[in-house]
Amino acid sequence: MSATAINATRPKTRPQPQFKSLLHMQAIVLLKLLWDQILSLEYAQITDILRSPSQVLFVAAEFGVVDLITELFQSYPDLIWRVDEHGRSIFHMAVIHRQEKIFRLIHDRGAHKDMIAAYRDKNNHCILHLAGKIATPNRLNIVSGAALQMQREMLWFKNVQPLYKEMRDSNGRTPRMLFTEEHAKLVKEGEKWMKSTASSCMLVATLITTMMFAAIFTVPGGNDNEKGTPIFLEATSFVIFAVSDALALFSSVTSILMFLSILTSRYAEEDFLRLLPQRLIVGLTTLFLSIAAMLVAFGATFCIVLSQRLAWIAVPVAFIACIPVTLFAFLQFPLHLDIVQSSYGVGIFA
């Protein structure tokens, strides 16, 4: 049962998309058939099967096989109270291995979760101590960048914290003390990652600010010697140039300020939860806007300069100008999406 059920619900190889749903359904049917056979046995036999050879319930919690655990709980609710040889329940295992689906499954069980959270393991660790320990590498690396990994760890600690009050383990450490000790290296790596990202982006934003500031004083087509106004002031392309230049300038300045605030942050543990990610979101968003507006201003200038002789060139220039913007969006979108999901609750604990 243990090896068969878990391997059935957690394939070793990645199936093709068109077969993934079918494979999942077949695994669930197999699981139900196996479990129905087990339920027909005596209580002592059921207990022996769940206890050996590798404690099916806890292995399933470790790997996040939520379908297996849901099926077991529905037909055998008493399993929620079981503990392993270290005195840890399935709830504790979900926290140790950062399995948010398993965590939510038991967290929704009302008063039961409070009673389970009160369990302590052999080291006198409560569930909050376990959340204070750093995640295993395979779970830590599901998000990119040390700063986002630190944010994810803080999210876990904050979500588990209401379940249990502060207490000390066998070494006299509170959960917060254990968290600080375990994540000291990750905080340093997160600071380094944030500063490196902010410095690189700030350099680009500074270059855009410089160019856009200079461009508004050297308008395309020049100025009227008598009036001092731009010659192409009435042209639609000039209006597009002026608006896009101003938008690029203001966006790049905003981006610089955001990245500067990241560089001068104190980098406390709490800063990785909301403050730093939100500043990075604003910085990346305004940087993207400034790049897009800069290329629009370039295209408008190109049309102004060549409108008399090469009017047809406006269309290909517009298409070519879209390439860098699309490339930047394509490269930065995964990072931007990760930050937004973690920062605004559409990620692990939604």
Results as ranks from 00 to 15, higher is better:
Thr326Asn: 06
Ala329Phe: 14
Ala8Gln: 08
Val83His: 06
Ser40Leu: 11
Pro137Ile: 12
Ile348Lys: 02
Leu68Tyr: 10
Val56Gly: 01
Asn124Tyr: 02
Leu155Gln: 12
Gln99Ser: 06
Ile142Gly: 00
Glu191Met: 13
Val95Tyr: 03
Asp84Thr: 10
Asp121Tyr: 06
Leu247Asp: 03
Val83Ala: 05
Leu203Pro: 00
Pro175Ile: 09
Ala27Thr: 09
Val296His: 07
Ala61His: 05
Ser200Tyr: 09
Val29Ala: 14
Ile46Met: 09
Gln332Asn: 10
Phe259Asn: 07
Ser21Asp: 13
Tyr119Leu: 15
Asn138Cys: 06
Lys227Gln: 12
Arg98Ser: 06
Val187Lys: 15
Arg152Phe: 04
Thr254Ser: 12
Ser75Arg: 15
Leu72His: 02
Ile262Met: 09
Pro324Leu: 05
Leu289Lys: 04
Asp48Ser: 12
Phe179Trp: 15
Phe288Glu: 09
Leu50Ile: 07
Met294Asp: 01
Leu284Arg: 13
Leu23His: 01
Met202Thr: 08
Thr218Ser: 13
Asn123His: 09
Leu260Arg: 14
Asp108Glu: 12
Ala268His: 10
Asp169Met: 09
Leu337Thr: 01
Phe73Trp: 03
Ala311Lys: 08
Ala147Arg: 03
Arg168Val: 15
Glu270Tyr: 10
Val66Thr: 13
Phe213Pro: 01
Val219Cys: 01
Lys165Cys: 12
Lys12Gly: 14
Pro230Tyr: 04
Ile96His: 01
Thr197Lys: 12
His129Pro: 01
Leu276Trp: 02
Ile69Gly: 03
Lys133Ser: 09
Arg14Val: 05
Pro324Ala: 07
Leu178Ser: 03
Trp35Thr: 08
Leu263Gln: 11
Tyr119Cys: 08
Asp67Ile: 04
Gly190Arg: 05
His129Arg: 07
Leu310Asn: 15
Ile102Gly: 04
His86Cys: 07
Asn223Ala: 02
Ala318Met: 09
Leu186His: 11
Val325Met: 09
Phe250Cys: 08
Val346Pro: 00
Asp36Leu: 06
Arg266Asn: 08
Asp338Glu: 15
Ile80Phe: 15
Ser89Gly: 07
Ser40Ala: 13
Gly347Ser: 11
Tyr164Gly: 00
Phe103Gly: 05
Thr210Phe: 04
Ile142Val: 14
